[in-house]
Nucleic acid binder design. Structure first.
Length: 245
DNA sequence: CGCCAGGTGGGAT
DNA sequence: ATCCCACATGGC
């Protein structure tokens, strides 16, 4: 396998193995036309057409920081059922009330503060329109938004061609032998930007496939049996030699 | 029980 | 620049 093609090859094989992922999930759309029971949109993905959808992605991106998505689903549903899903609601609500609603997502005191900050940022009329997307620098200046959250917002809420790097990306590509493990976020992102077509739909699917692959096979304790990309994986080769000398 | 989960900010070195 | 820690719930 030519090194230059490895990223595209991994993309193809993960897609063939797991199918289109339908990110970003919108629990508020669960059961609606084109969405499954959890709010994923498998098949041909469409970016959110409404400001409300974009804000739900932004809230979800904050709530899922170092947290399982299932816990975030519960929090998003509780917010919506309490009528607290929009910037104008969150802006005025006491942090401890928001905290109670988002309890399941963990770090709820921290995250309640973060939601109040982003409510202020995205409250102004037009702030959630596609064409008024913030810059990465503007997002990073906001308390509670780091690199991954900023990039998730740019890609999934605003459809910008920005690749999202997460802990799974680092783990999988280090095991593959493509990264050493100590590269910075921006270095890893730059590599993806260089190796994949500069297209939001490609970045969307690649990141979602990485998450799925990390959950199914490339876990903290790896399950290499049946792994769709083991033939390109350094870790797999080495562990075979180790276990079957 | 312990480990893990789609990180971030703040402080020390 | 880089390391270290607090932040917290729910599922397995």
């Amino acid at each position: 396998m030519a090194p230059r093609r490895i990223f595209s090859s991994l993309y193809s094989r993960l897609l063939a193995a797991y199918g289109p992922q339908g990110w970003w999930p919108l629990p508020s759309m669960a059961g609606s036309r084109g969405f499954d029971a959890r709010g994923y949109h498998p098949g041909r993905y469409r970016w959110p057409s409404s400001a409300q959808g974009r804000f739900e992605i932004i809230v979800g991106a904050v709530l899922t920081q170092n947290t399982a998505w299932t816990n975030v689903e519960m929090a998003l549903t509780r917010l919506r059922e309490a009528g607290m899903e929009l910037p104008q609601h969150l802006r005025l609500a006491p942090a401890n009330r928001i905290g109670r609603l988002i309890r399941s997502s963990g770090y709820y005191n921290q995250k309640a503060k973060k939601l109040k900050v982003i409510a202020e940022v995205f409250l102004p009329a037009g702030a959630l329109e596609r064409r008024s997307a913030p810059t990465r620098e503007q997002l990073l200046a906001i308390w509670g938004i780091g690199r991954e959250t900023a990039d998730s917002i740019l890609l999934y809420a605003f459809g910008r061609p920005v690749f999202v790097v997460d802990a799974y990306t680092r783990r999988i590509f280090t095991r593959l032998g493509i990264f050493e493990g100590r590269e910075s976020y921006d270095e890893i992102q730059e590599e993806f930007h260089h190796r994949l077509p500069r297209r939001p739909d490609v970045y969307n699917e690649m990141h979602a496939l990485i998450v799925e692959h990390a959950k199914r096979h490339c876990r903290s304790k790896p399950l290499c049996a049946g792994c769709p990309i083991s033939r390109s994986c350094r870790y797999f080769s080495v562990s075979r030699v180790t276990h079957f000398p």
